[in-house]
Simulated assay, not measured.
Amino acid sequence: MKALLALEDGSFFFGQSLGAEGETFGELVFNTGMTGYQEVLTDPSYTGQIVVMTYPEIGIYGVNEEDVESDGIKVAGFVVYRSVSVPSNWRATISFPDYLKKHNIVAIEGVDTRALTRKIRVKGAMKGAISTVDLNPESLVRRVKESPSIVGRDLAGLVSPKEVIVENEEGDFSVVVLDSGVKWGILRDLKRVGARVIRVPYGVDIDDIKKLNPDGVLISNGPGDPAALLKTIRLIRDLLKEEIPLAGICLGHQLLGLAIGARTYKMKFGHRGINHPVKDLRSGRVLITTHNHGFAVDPKSFGLPELGSEDQDANVLTSNLQKISVLEGTSPQGIKVEITHISLNDGTMEGMRLVDYPAFSVQYHPEASPGPHDAKYFFEEFKRLVKEVR
């Protein structure tokens, strides 16, 4: 069946329908991972987004029942150059195209994903749509332009649990996960380091947290614009006052920044992939990390200069960034902050630690899922912080 992909800049691509019939709208972004499409599909942080996979052939190893990051597919739509309908892996339980159809996901194949990725890199992430119903480019482009932007939208409510969920009863210390769309890999790693894990909805109050008497709180990843989650930002401020050990991942990193008075900004095209170099400024090590974010914390909020941008020459920028050591600043609320990690691709602030509070965060995904395990020590650091405070 024919399918049409249309973008808000007026461009369009015809291809073949890959998943369910119908149409879908969302922000068009790209992921550079050669593997991990199953984890991408089920990552709650992709809620509201149509994902373009830059690797040309998707579906080679099929889909299994273990490598999921949530209870189902969360992307708004999917774009690939060529799909593989017969998987070649003993773990596969269903093919990639059948998996999309099973979950009623509208997708398209046979479009030039290289040209599409180039367009997003030059012009930035933009609104788009995939349709098997409206095959009139002029009509679909007009409707894309009329569709809502991801900026200012609270999408966490679509993927946050509605009630408290006890993940496991045994462990050396207890962690409450403020769940804005947590990846299951994060929960697995918390359990791996000996935590008793309790997930709570992202909109709870400080009293709800205190009743659970946690040793620490982890602020999870999630979709959408962090600045829209005002109640969660206020909750994090209350948690800091209580001096409960805090750790943040991705959206959690951005929310911690907002809670101490920093600004966040929308990146031009963001980071999405499994091979992003990040420098740990404390040790000098370079970590290869997994990313999925389109917003970031502005280092200028802490009185620091801009460290780089997505449009700078990569080789020159990386050379300059590698010379940077520990950076320290102060938030608009007077809170001292140490910048612990930076991206060697564009200078994005990738990690911070509050000097006078038991709190730290990273912008990348230390649990990977998929990706390299260079940053797994994040969970050991959190455990160490919790036990020191306790």
Rank of each mutant, 00 (worst) to 15 (best):
D298L: 13
I58A: 01
G252L: 09
I233Q: 01
P214Y: 00
S369M: 08
T32Q: 15
E69G: 00
P137F: 08
R272W: 09
E8C: 08
R91F: 05
E350M: 15
R199A: 03
G181A: 07
L158F: 08
V144T: 05
E27K: 13
I324E: 10
R390V: 06
L158K: 12
K300M: 09
G351M: 06
L256K: 02
K123Y: 14
V386D: 04
R234I: 15
I244S: 04
P87Y: 09
D134Q: 15
V337G: 09
A368H: 06
K336N: 15
L327D: 06
A296P: 02
D208H: 13
S369D: 10
I186D: 12
A92G: 03
A368G: 11
K279V: 01
V362W: 03
S11V: 04
F378V: 06
E380W: 14
K387G: 06
L190G: 12
F30S: 02
V51D: 07
V197D: 04
L116R: 02
E167T: 15
H365S: 13
R142T: 08
V106E: 03
K383E: 08
S147R: 07
Y364R: 03
I58K: 01
L256N: 03
E23Q: 14
S325I: 12
V68Y: 02
R282N: 01
V337T: 10
Y55T: 11
L187I: 14
S283V: 11
